[in-house]
Design a protein around this nucleic acid. Structure first.
Lengths: 186, 186
DNA sequence: TTTTCTCGACCAACTGTTAGGTAGGGTTGA
DNA sequence: TCAACCCTACCTAACAGTTGGTCGAGAAAA
């Protein structure tokens, strides 16, 4: 086990948090899923706050990597932009899960400070990437970052609404509508 | 007390749920806030699920009334539409709270069936009103309802993002961007 | 008197967390 | 070479606090 145990804990915790939030995380269930006793998790993480922060950090790191891959696979930023909502779609495809950081944004009042920081970084990572992509679209530089934030917020909102109906088609329709109205460049 | 106790419980529960979700609801705290023993709440609501459903139902009923007032106060649907995001802004103004049903949408997996129904009705109420308002804007009838859903989702997403920064100005900027890009008619 | 409501006390289940122990591998020094 | 030691990874057992929920007794109002 050793290093792979820590990885397994992070994965299990991420999946749980994507469905039940930070409040839904508990050491017993994670231990069961990993095949370890709850107390043993303390060998890898000092506290629940520590685990939560590690999970959220890993989450935005993975997202940053995914975004990088997206802009590398699609030479044209417009095509990358087109593929962006697919990242949020994937969570819904996985048993109607949602973005970890959207969930934690809702739970914001009850989050340890260290977790809050990572959640905000997730948004920053997304906005920064979107801003770069928008530079290639016909969005004036002065409005680029705000537009990036708007797209991020809208896609997150679409995911939230689609989740509450467990309806992937609804998500697709919402994204289409964002494109049709001009919010997301086509 | 009697009827006013039940009302007070509903109000306290709503405020708590807007900040900590359905999971954050607990009878002790509500009792304390109302000035009643936790056990006494059972005289008014049969279970936590019952209370949750009642709170969510009251929430969309109040929202329906607010929306009606909005379209009455603004003769022009375009003006009413302009005022719509203000409803979501108000939650943020109240100690950075958020839409009860957005929070519950995130918690969807852990919601009793009766609560889920009310949460979906909240979305329906918003979409129905927006669809009516869009009829007066230059949105083709075939796309009206989908656009209504898109606006609802986007505004909810903006609220979520602004909450995670406790930043009202961010919310305003996001809404402005929704308008500037054409998602929300001006 | 009867109904309506509130009370304190209690329960089982669950929470994050700690103390202390054990099995096995690696390193050390005589 | 071999015993002594230490480290990592995990364990059992229990802690104190909180959760949603229930009970019978009694106060208040009709």
């Amino acid at each position: 086990m050793s290093e792979s145990a820590k990885e397994a804990i992070l994965v299990a915790a991420r999946r749980t948090a994507q469905a039940h939030g930070y409040a839904g995380l508990n050491f017993r269930d994670i231990g069961d899923e990993v095949g370890i006793k709850a107390a043993s998790i303390y060998h890898h993480f000092r506290s629940k706050a520590d685990l939560g922060a590690a999970v959220a950090k890993r989450y935005w790191q993975d997202t940053a990597a995914n975004l990088e891959a997206l802009s590398k696979a699609n030479g044209d930023p417009r095509k990358a932009l087109r593929a962006y909502p697919g990242l949020f779609r994937r969570s819904l495809e996985e048993d109607n899960r949602m973005c970890l950081c959207s969930f934690m944004a809702a739970e914001y009042d009850d989050l340890p400070e260290s977790v809050k920081t990572e959640v905000q970084t997730f948004a920053d990572v997304n906005v920064a990437w979107l801003t770069r992509m928008l530079a290639a679209a016909s969005v004036p530089a002065s409005k680029r970052e705000t537009r990036a934030r708007a797209i991020f917020a809208a896609v997150a909102g679409a995911q939230l609404m689609a989740r509450s109906r467990a309806d992937l088609k609804l998500f697709d329709a919402l994204i289409d509508s964002f494109r049709g109205s001009g919010l997301i460049p086509t």
